[in-house]
């Protein structure tokens, strides 16, 4: 039985490999590396911005830096950072997720005031992506709750984008003549009765709507809608801007504890500050994020139609912490929608 794979030597070798792998777990410290932990729809934008930043950093300091990104659902990404993912900066979908990291002491509690405009260098909103010609005639939020309309949105429990969708609809219903929390609840219940598939993330919902042909309307980030529109042929879909929506402010922050340990604070701060520079602002506009810089916004022309937008700090919501507790925590309003006997 010579030459049988399991020899003494290979067994010892395997042990050695495992040993080194477990011992050498620390990330290799070579050229400075910057890890940006972000959420799903920013993939294309940060790929472009990373290149821009690396070049800029080299020009200014002479140092070579590697910028890498990790993408996923906003909540999952925040949890990974809490659990020890060595992020230098986080660029997530909601302030709530960064607050959660801050609560565990990884980020300073005052993070949101450290950068201009609520630490959100670009904004977005929620729009409707409908089938070509809008056969169901969906113009505003009220149309979505009508019988016979199938609405695709991700699950607000797992997707940051879906929370913006939900809150936009809820605010719209409150703002209607005779609006009240009860009326909003009734509206949201009718809306979610029209949802046949709840994917876990924004990208999953887009695929369900676009590739699988499910639903009449997709509630999506403005940038996602435009990207899907560009990727999947213009002949198939239309983008509908409702008369009213929500101002989504995806915030960014330096993860203090990680940058201090890894000695990357200077680069991390420059990375985020750079997002407010004109070049990055017009890059954001190119990727369908609404730039904060008025010049970049003007340059984008009619790419971003004006519409009335409510912010999360409006008394209607009272900030993310309250909105999260009221609507999305276990036992919150969203869970009650799916209580049996409703």
């Amino acid at each position: 039985m010579q030459g049988f794979p399991v020899s003494r030597r290979s067994v010892a070798g395997a042990g050695l490999v495992l040993g080194t792998a477990l011992a050498g777990g620390a990330r290799a410290q070579g050229a400075t590396q910057l890890l940006n932990v972000s959420y799903d729809p920013t993939r294309e934008f940060y790929r472009a911005y990373n290149a821009l930043f690396v070049e800029d950093w080299k020009r200014r300091t002479g140092q070579t830096i590697r910028a890498s990104t990790s993408h996923g659902g906003s909540g999952r990404q925040a949890r990974s950072v809490i659990d020890g993912l060595q992020a230098d900066v986080v660029t997530l979908a909601l302030a709530y997720d960064i607050d959660a990291i801050a609560e565990r002491g990884l980020i300073d509690a005052n993070w949101q005031s450290r950068l201009p405009q609520n630490s959100a260098p670009y904004t977005s909103t929620i729009v409707f992506l409908v089938r070509k010609g809008n056969p169901k005639g969906l113009r505003d939020w009220g149309d979505l709750a009508k019988p016979g309309v199938a609405v695709i949105t991700p699950n607000p429990k797992t997707s940051g984008g879906a929370r913006w969708n939900y809150l936009a609809g809820w605010a719209w219903a409150q703002r209607q003549p005779g609006g009240s929390p009860q009326a909003a609840e009734t509206y949201i219940a009718a809306l979610f009765r029209n949802v046949p598939v709840l994917d876990t993330g924004a990208r999953g919902s887009t695929t369900t709507f676009v590739q699988r042909g499910q639903g009449d309307v997709l509630l999506a980030w403005e940038n996602e809608a435009h990207l899907a529109f560009a990727e999947f042929g213009r002949g198939q879909f239309d983008i509908v801007y409702p008369g009213f929506s929500i101002l989504a402010e995806p915030p960014v922050a330096v993860v203090d504890r990680n940058v201090d340990r890894r000695g990357t604070r200077a680069a991390a701060e420059a990375f985020l500050k750079g997002l407010y520079e004109p070049e990055a602002q017009s890059l954001a506009a190119q990727h369908f994020y609404r730039p904060r810089d008025p010049a970049a916004l003007a340059a984008a022309g009619d790419r971003f139609p004006q519409l009335e937008m409510i912010t999360i700090d409006d008394p209607l919501f009272g900030g993310w912490r309250k909105a999260q507790a009221d609507h999305f925590e276990d036992g919150g309003l969203f869970d009650r929608l799916y209580r049996p006997g409703r």
Partner: peptide, 9 residues
Amino acid sequence: DIQIVFALP
């Protein structure tokens, strides 16, 4: 400074 989760181990 040993990284186990979010790394190879």
